[in-house]
Design a protein around this nucleic acid. Structure first.
Lengths: 238, 238
DNA sequence: ACCTGAACACCGTTCAAGT
DNA sequence: ACCTGAACACCGTTCAAGT
């Protein structure tokens, strides 16, 4: 009988021995693990390959390229979003609830929002999201062309906001973020007030409000605008 | 007297002989040349160095890093934006004119909008832009906190839209772009109408409108919302 | 002070070769 | 069909050495 090898002499365990077979699901799962821990920038083909104990070339049997991988991440995230049922009476609340949840899901995956920018959402779960939003707006009596354009604009707003906010959440704990915002406020306050009277005058207000408060503000503007247009159209021809 | 060297035998002219001394201005100019021709992705330290007949390391004497270079590009672009004077009576038009011009300038530099995302505008020309927008809103009677948040949200909208639109303008002439949009429309139209009734039903309207029309739609929503809030505040404690 | 070549530590993607 | 190693053509940035 030989004694067991003491821990400090054990070779670093090669996951290779218990390695799962490569698959698109495994690749996407590894990508999410990296994304949620370090942000989108760290999600590279080579890092994913590392995570799966293989070489980068091996991934290309299951994913066409990095862009398709990002599309897969987005589709999975889109699947996490709750889709409220349409309600003619409360269409504004339903639309807001949907967009709030989209924002929540995106931010929960750090700066994944960046991957949603400049991409037309044609994946299954993204289509289901668009369908749900269009249904809510249309049931509420928003004119058809407004529904179509609003679905685009509203999503653009949420995605852009989630990107900016997810980044912020990324490279700083709450304390660091607060300190940075405070520093910006200081900077605004100390600018020459003859050249920048409004920035100086509003320095405090420019830096108040966390991401959620600001998100709600923009959402309020957009939905109010949409409601006003819908009301106008209703009056114009019954 | 010897005959001149025929053109086909001339060595490719080395710009090195007539090379300008390196400077931040020269670097930014070279960067804009590449940006306007090929988009932001092509604006790398190494490409700029190539353009200036030097090595990438030489740039670091004049620019801290790539992020600072992008900030310089944005500041110069911000300097191209026309800043309307405030006008209490027509604040909505003045705000729209400013944001339209910001959009125009960004798109004229391809997908430069991407560089504006996730960056707090603290450069001189960016501050002047913010100041102008705040002045317009405040003079119009928009409540202070709304002015502060709106300046942020409105810029976010323009920048995000310019990014998406500038990209589209990048990798396709007008014809290609039209064909792509038409293909998307086809795709929407051919989806199963039991699962996606609204996408199918609105397929035509989802793909109508060029970038400018869609930009105006979003702008209308935001400014209407802002005006409605301002009116509410006025009534509340006029 | 400015510029340079070389190096470091990364990228995405392809391709011939293996199983 | 899937996986691999090696290579190709790139990145941003640093650093010691030159002028």
């Amino acid at each position: 009988m030989s004694l067991p090898v003491p821990p400090w002499e054990q070779r670093p365990q090669k996951r290779r021995s218990t390695k799962q077979p490569l698959s698109q699901e495994a690749i996407v799962a590894a990508a999410f693990k990296i994304l949620d821990a370090e942000g989108l920038e760290a999600v590279t083909m080579r890092r994913i390959a590392d995570e799966l104990d293989t070489g980068p070339a091996s991934l290309y049997a299951h994913v066409a390229n990095k862009d398709e991988l990002y599309a897969l991440l987005l589709d999975q995230a889109a699947g996490e979003v709750r889709l409220p049922a349409p309600d003619a009476e409360h269409w504004q609340d339903r639309a807001k609830d949907f967009l709030r949840d989209l924002n929540r899901v995106l931010i929960s995956h750090k700066d994944l929002g960046r991957a949603a920018l400049a991409r037309i959402p044609v994946s299954p779960n993204a289509l289901a999201s668009s369908e749900a939003l269009l249904a809510i707006l249309r049931t509420g009596g928003v004119p058809d062309q407004d529904c179509a354009w609003a679905a685009d604009i509203l999503s653009l707003y949420v995605v852009a906001h989630a990107y900016e906010n997810g980044l912020q959440q990324l490279h700083g704990d709450e304390d660091e973020g607060m300190a940075y915002v405070a520093a910006i406020g200081e900077y605004f306050h100390q600018l020459p007030s003859d050249r920048f009277p409004n920035i100086v005058g509003l320095a405090g207000l420019l830096t108040t409000g966390d991401g959620d408060v600001r998100f709600e503000f923009g959402l309020d503007l957009l939905i109010r605008g949409l409601a006003a247009r819908a009301e106008e159209a209703r009056k114009a021809h019954g």
